[in-house]
Design a protein around this nucleic acid. Structure first.
Lengths: 154, 154
DNA sequence: TATTGTTATACTCTATAACTATA
DNA sequence: TATAGTTATAGAGTATAACAATA
């Protein structure tokens, strides 16, 4: 690094050596596959994410759900409006703090979630099949490690 | 997979077990880090991607560049407008086909690209440092594998 | 005063259609 | 006719500011 060198065009990184390119395009492709698998259920990957958080935690407020998914609380309003209009979730003011809306799955929402989640899991498995089961597990672990500093620093 | 099982709420996948969640948030975090590293140069990750493709290939048309990056040709117009206004790239009609614009880096563009690319490489390295060098290489390889079916099918 | 949900607004990114000039 | 670049437009997704109800 002490000598200045010319960098001829032959030494420019190929676009598919750039981590940002790889991650972005994998993300787009996976979302596309997942949305296709979810289309029969009338939801997309974002909707399923919301349903999953509500299904996992009990008595979550809208802000709790938004926080877990990393979406703005103002965006959560429209997401829930759509899911509530379809009868998949219901909102009710919390008894302990009436500013908060407790969001829960309806019976219909629970049923749709289980079916759609199964389809999403299958789509993910198909997507990572070429890596083998150990390779897929390693990928998941690596990605979690990359997010860890972020989550532990907050 | 042959037996139907109940999935009570305790067994709902945690959001950070969902590959789509992991990939999306890693993508957002990496882009944020890269953009921060590139800010002193007045470009973002997208701009650098465009400059990189132009720097790597010789005599690329706007559509060639757009195709490599997977962006629409109509989006490429505005991207190049901004880079050209700053004197980093230049457009000229191809001599063999005057419908096409051959896009090249100016001397100023080449200089900025080399500095900004070095900063981007450093940001990437810092981002994946926790994986170790073999882990980072394995991640890159896995991501490339996931994109392969897509690129070979086209 | 501060917080939750809400609305309005704006800004970015992306996708589609139509125009022009060239082929 | 078909293609490259361009423009206009509309649709998502996201972010900020301000408001009402509640704490």
């Amino acid at each position: 690094m002490s000598t200045k060198r010319r960098v001829p065009s032959a030494e420019v990184r190929a676009h598919d050596d750039v981590l940002g390119y790889l991650v972005k395009h994998v993300q787009l492709l996976l979302e596309q596959r997942t949305d296709a698998a979810l289309a029969p259920f009338g939801v997309n990957a974002r909707d399923l994410g919301v349903l999953r958080v509500i299904a996992a935690g009990r008595s979550s407020s809208q802000q709790d759900v938004a926080g877990v998914l990393g979406v703005d609380r103002t965006s959560m309003v429209a997401l829930l409006d759509a899911l509530e209009a379809r009868g998949l979730v219901s909102r009710a003011p919390s008894e302990s703090d009436r500013r908060r809306n407790v969001v829960v799955l309806t019976a219909s929402g629970r049923g749709l979630f289980q079916s759609a989640e199964a389809a999403a899991v299958d789509a993910e498995s198909a997507f990572v099949a070429a890596l083998g089961s150990t390779g897929a597990a390693r990928l998941r672990r690596s990605l979690r490690v990359l997010l860890e500093p972020e989550t532990s620093r907050r």
